[in-house]
Design a binder for these strands. Structure first.
Lengths: 66, 66
DNA sequence: TCTATATGTAAAGTTTCTTTTACTTTTGAT
DNA sequence: ATCAAAAGTAAAAGAAACTTTACATATAGA
């Protein structure tokens, strides 16, 4: 799975720390997500999508191997 | 977080086992999700939403305590 | 250049997801 | 009422998410 969190952050002019605080996770969690270190929970993707006012599918994308 | 997987399954006339096989998880995982035993990963919610031809937000819903 | 802010990374630990196995209960059809 | 399929549940084990702490690197502005 990939995601466009970094781009969305840029649009909203938020740092990783800003986003982390906004959705209630650690900054490292945001960083790891952006670097595709792991797959976030559905609660996290729903929160992120809500914050960025976009459907989950516009931010998180399935890949071949998923 | 809540979800309407059971309803979607009914619409598509699928058993828990059918759905489990379709998205590549165990039947108990589907059952546990329906019974709100845990929060699935974003890969799972994307797969389920895709299968049911609905946005993730139409199947998984954030709650107060999320 | 110096400094502050932002990002990247890593290791250890805790929590949560997911599987496997296996058994019980419910439901629906005959 | 019986039988089979579906759903519910539970425990143990493994895998993955997420936190905390801590440090390294990058970037931009004064």
């Amino acid at each position: 799975m990939k995601n466009s969190i970094k781009v969305q952050r840029a649009i909203f002019d938020m740092t990783q720390a800003d986003l982390a605080k906004a959705i209630g996770v650690s900054r490292q969690t945001i960083n790891a997500m952006e670097k595709n270190k792991y797959v976030p929970s559905t609660v996290l993707s729903l929160k992120i999508a809500k914050l960025f006012k976009k459907p989950v599918e516009d931010i998180f994308f399935l890949e071949e191997d998923d």
